Structure formats: structure tokens, C-alpha cells
Amino acid sequence: MDQFIILYLKLFFMMTPFFVMSAFIAMTKHASKAEKKRIIFKICVAVFVTGMLFFLFGIYIFDLFGITLDAFKIGAGTVLFLSAIDMIRQDDTPTAIKNTDNDIAIVPLAIPITIGPGLIGVLMVYGAEPSSVMHNVIVCMALLASVVSVGLILLISNKVQHLLGKQGLKILPKITGLFVSAIGAQIIFSGIQGFFKL
């Protein structure tokens, strides 16, 4: 149970839920309740399916390109850390998410806003590390729980917006960014430690 909670919290914060929520609010302000629910469902499905694909088949990508696990940890941790810095320094809604001409559920809300390079990298690391069947099941359940949690936050996004206001929505992604930067730093240190043990 402790392992599940730890993995769940890591994956949840790496999905940057409050940044996703602020982006969702900005992009769906003219959508009906039914349309918002449809978009949320598609986001959740896309994130879970994409995450599972990288978790299950990441090890084959390593073999294909000849990448070591420790090198990938350093790379993925760096990307995650830099993404967190962008979140902390971000003042406005990114211009990339202001275009609503296409289906916004898959791109950009699911990919790359919810499941970005950092989260993809971490899932690939989890999938490539030697582990038991139970550990893999726990990772899958933690991923599912994280996706459901993000979906629930999006469902109540209007209430959260009224409660916090615009300034509050700007602060939440920065707080999330601090947690994500710490996770990224930990992954980098783990990769460096493994590299010097070789």
C-alpha cells in the first residue's frame, strides 16, 4: 500500500494537474457541460493508453536504440526538471494551447500537457527496471488512479476556478512545478549514482 501511494503521488504530480486544469478552463470556456465531459473522458483514455504503451514497451525502445537505463534516467530527469522550471516561470497560458480549431482533448490537453516527455520518460524507466509482477500491477494501478484523479479535478474545474480566482489558478501550477522539479532531481541523482556504480 505504501508503494502504491508513493507511486500514485509521483505520477499524479508529474501529470501537472493544476496546470492541466488551468489550460482546460482556458480552452473550454465556450463549451457546454456535455462537451466538457466528453473532452475529459477522451483526455483520461488517451493519457492512460499512452502511459501504458510506454510503460510496457519502453524496454524494447531502449534495446532498439542501445540506450542504458541510467543514461535515460539522467535524460528523463533533466527534461522533467526543465519542464518544472517552465511551469514555475510561466505567467500566462501557453500560446500552443490557445488554438481550439482541432480536437483539443488529445492534442494538446492529453499530449503533451498531461503526459509530457518527463512522465513518458519515468514510465519507460519503471517499465525497464527489473521488477516483480506485483510491482508492475502497482504501477498500472497507480497510473490509473492518477488519471482518474486528474479527470475528477477537471470535472470540478469550474468550482475550483470560482473558489480560487484567476490569481489562484496561476499559483497552483507553480506549486506543482516545485514538486515536479524535486522528482526530476531525484531521477537525475539516481541515474548518476547508477552510472558510477558500473
Rank of each mutant, 00 (worst) to 15 (best):
V137W: 00
M134G: 09
A142D: 04
T100I: 08
H135N: 13
V150M: 15
H135K: 07
I171S: 02
H162C: 14
H162Y: 04
D2M: 14
A145H: 05
I115P: 01
V125S: 03
A145I: 13
F18Q: 07
L69K: 13
Q186H: 09
I6A: 11
L178F: 13
I104E: 01
Q161A: 15
V150A: 13
P130I: 03
T176S: 14
L154N: 07
I88T: 12
V148Y: 04
F55D: 12
V45A: 09
I43V: 15
C140D: 06
V148N: 13
S132H: 02
F12T: 10
F24Q: 02
I156W: 10
V147Q: 06
D91I: 00
L109H: 04
K174A: 06
L152Q: 04
S157F: 08
F19D: 02
K170N: 11
Y126R: 05
V147D: 13
D103Y: 05
G194A: 14
H30E: 14
T28L: 08
L178N: 10
F13I: 14
F4M: 03
S190V: 09
G168N: 10
I111C: 06
S132E: 01
L152W: 08
V47C: 12
I97H: 07
F196Q: 13
A128G: 05
N136V: 00
M134E: 00
A34L: 00
S146M: 09
M21P: 05
T95E: 15
F48M: 15
L178D: 07
F179C: 10
L178R: 07
A96T: 12
D70R: 12
G121R: 11
A185R: 01
I192W: 15
I39E: 08
K37F: 00
Y126P: 01
I171M: 08
L143K: 04
V122H: 09
F4R: 03
S131W: 00
F4A: 04
D91V: 12
M52L: 12
A182M: 06
D70P: 07
F18I: 05
F4D: 09
L9S: 02
G151L: 04
I88E: 09
T114C: 09
M87D: 06
Y8R: 12
G116V: 11
N136L: 04
E129R: 14
N158V: 06
I156F: 03
I106Q: 05
F12S: 15
Y60P: 00
F18D: 04
D70Y: 05
F48H: 07
V20A: 11
K73I: 13
H30P: 11
F41A: 12
A145S: 15
M52G: 11
K170A: 12
I97C: 06
F189M: 13
S157N: 07
M124V: 02
I171H: 00
I183R: 03
V139Q: 07
A84S: 14
G116Q: 01
G194E: 15
K29N: 15
A110L: 02
F55Y: 03
A76D: 08
M52D: 02
K174L: 03
T95M: 15
L198A: 02
L198I: 12
K33V: 10
N136S: 13
K33S: 13
G116H: 06
